[in-house]
Every structure is written in C-alpha cells, then in structure tokens.
C-alpha cells in the first residue's frame, strides 16, 4: 500500500507539472495494479487526496472537503466491485461442478455398440449444453440387439437427472430379447411414479432379431425413425402410436415389425435432429433425407458423423437442442 501511495504521488506530481499523454498512460498502468491488489475505489480517492495535500501545501480547504464526499459516494462502488468479484468466483465454481457432473453422466450413460453381427451400427449423441437430455442405450446378446433412444423435453441438468432414471430402468430389464412394448411399459411405470407432472420423456425402442433379420419397434411419443429401403431408394417413416412416458401408468403401446434386407437401414433420432433450424426456418425432412442418402454407402458411423456436421453447418454451428442419431444398417 505504501508503495502505491509513493508511486501515485509521483505520477500526480508529474501530471500537475505537465499534462502529457505519457503521464496519463502511467496513471492507467497503476490502475491495473491497484485492481489486481484489490484496492477499492474509495481507497484510491483517499490516496489521491493525501497526495494532493502533500504536493500542494496551500490546497484550498473546500477542495479538501470535496474529496470526503467523493469517498462517501465511492464506498458502494467498492462494495459492488467486491460483490461482482465474489459472483464471478461463484460462477466459476458452478461451471467446474457442471463439468464434473457432465463427466459423471458420461460414465453413467456409457453404452457399448454391439459388433460381430449382421448390422453396421453408427451412433452420435451431442449435448447442447454440458449435460445431455438425450439417451441412447444398447442391449445385446447372441441373437438380439435392442436399442433405446429417449429424449427428455427440456435440456440441461433437470433433463440429465431424469435420464439416469431411464438408465436404471433399462438395467432392470432381462435382456435384449424383451419385446419393445414390454420395455416401454416397464419404463413408463418407473417414470410415472418418479417424475413430476411437468417432465415429459419420449422414447423409441427397437429390437433386431438376427435370425430373422427382423426389426420390431414401439414408440412412446417419440420422433418416428426413418426406414431406407435400398431396393426402391426411398425413405418411409416408421410410425407407431403411443403416449409419452410418465403421463399415465397404463398405456397400450403399439408394436410393429419390418424386415431388413441388405443395404436397408433405420435412422433413429431425437428432435434435436428434426428440429434443426437455419436462418430460413426449420430444415425440412426432405433435406435431412437427402443428406443421409448422399452417404448411404458409407459405414454407419461415418454416416451419422456426416449428418451431424452437415446439419451443424446448415445451422451456422449453433446447436439449440441435444442431438442424437443412431443408424442400424443391414449388411
């Protein structure tokens, strides 16, 4: 503090003597140091007053008093500055906590992509913020592959907390053979019991039977997947009726099946994909279909990554919602 007083007095003395830009620059430099050392505005004025009194022995009494008023006025500025600093510190702590939570979530929701079957599988899931409100999970045994894709309406921490509940519901299931309608029924009961009325989750569940090349699916109000038939080079939506999870305990879900032939694929997604927006408005389903069709001969993982990057580009790299895309391609 004494050091600053000396420095300040010297700069002030110089400046009173000669009003050069250089002397003003010195003043600005010392302000950086003062802030770093947490010296509050009222203290700076007090230093100014004391320096002035030393430099000008004949300083007018009225002028001296005026600084006391200024000090009084500056006290709250000093407080506001300190509060600001504390809030910034707090914000950094929250951010760090969020990153930790996101890591925990990632570990929790880790899913193993099944290999060594007659399906080529690609998956990408990218949260809009730190925490993901989308969920994709595989179940797998020798003959069956199950895939769950879910989306909590909303994003961020509340959505992420909800997601872990679905994970434990999925873990309680017996195996990949379970029928989609049964899976949805079980998860719906869990969600209905544990989640507040304002929380809605949509979910799609599909099961692929390797022995019959059959894909059976059901949906709880989820975005319908796209089925690409390689023979006709055309997309169709896989519709299945069913209410969102957690609304009422007993819901009748509808189950459908299709057969996959070589080159056919199913594209499962969340509304982060279908509700992509560019400057001109929503990106149309046709555009998304065209993007996918462009890369239909690529490995499934490359397909999903390509679609993500393409849509990212169309949206000027501004991702509004959690994004999840899964492709099952028959080989």
């Amino acid at each position: 503090m004494e050091e600053f007083k000396k420095q300040y007095k010297k700069i002030l003395e110089q400046y009173i003597l000669k009003q050069t830009e250089h002397n003003l620059y010195e003043g600005q430099n010392i302000s950086r140091q003062l802030i770093q050392k947490n010296i509050s505005p009222e203290e700076v004025i007090s230093i100014h007053k004391a320096s002035l009194e030393e430099i000008m022995s004949d300083l007018d009494g009225d002028v001296q008093h005026s600084f006391d008023l200024l000090i009084e006025v500056m006290i709250r500025y000093g407080l506001a500055l300190k509060e600001h600093q504390t809030l910034i510190q707090k914000q950094q702590n929250i951010k760090m906590e969020m990153e930790l939570a996101a890591n925990v979530q990632q570990t929790l929701l880790k899913t193993k992509v099944p290999k060594e079957i007659d399906l080529d599988i690609g998956i990408i899931t990218v949260p809009a913020k730190e925490m993901n409100g989308d969920y994709a999970h595989f179940l797998h045994d020798n003959t069956h592959v199950g895939i769950a894709v879910a989306d909590v309406i909303g994003k961020g921490i509340p959505a992420a907390l909800c997601m872990s509940m679905i994970k434990y519901g999925m873990d309680s299931l017996d195996g990949a053979e379970t029928d989609p309608v049964i899976v949805l029924d079980v998860i719906n009961r869990i969600v209905e019991k544990s989640v507040s009325d304002s929380m809605f989750i949509s979910m799609f569940y599909g099961k692929y039977d390797t022995s019959k090349s059959e894909f059976t699916y059901a949906s709880a109000g989820h975005e319908p997947p796209l089925f690409y038939c390689s023979e006709t080079s055309s997309f169709t939506e896989l519709q299945a009726k069913g209410l969102l999870l957690g609304v009422i305990p007993n819901v009748k879900y509808e189950q459908q099946s299709i057969t996959l032939n070589k080159g056919d694929f199913v594209v499962m997604m969340t509304d982060g994909v279908t509700e992509c927006r560019s400057k001109e408005g929503f990106i149309e389903q046709k555009t998304i279909m065209d993007i996918i069709e462009n890369v239909r001969d690529q490995p499934a993982q490359e397909m999903v990554e390509y679609v993500f990057h393409k849509l990212e580009e169309l949206q000027d790299f501004e991702q509004r919602d959690d994004f999840t895309l899964v492709i099952f391609k028959k080989i």
Partner: peptide, 20 residues
C-alpha cells in the same frame, strides 16, 4: 447471499455490511 437484496440495490444489504 450476494445478489439477493429485497431493496434492490447493488453492493449493499447485509453482505455489504459484512464486507465493510
């Protein structure tokens, strides 16, 4: 808590007193 003040001013209230 910082940022919580019913009389609606910055840098005052009880946290301000504590700091002063």
């Amino acid at each position: 808590e910082d940022g919580f003040t019913t009389s609606g001013g910055l840098g005052a209230g009880l946290p301000g007193v504590k700091r002063l």
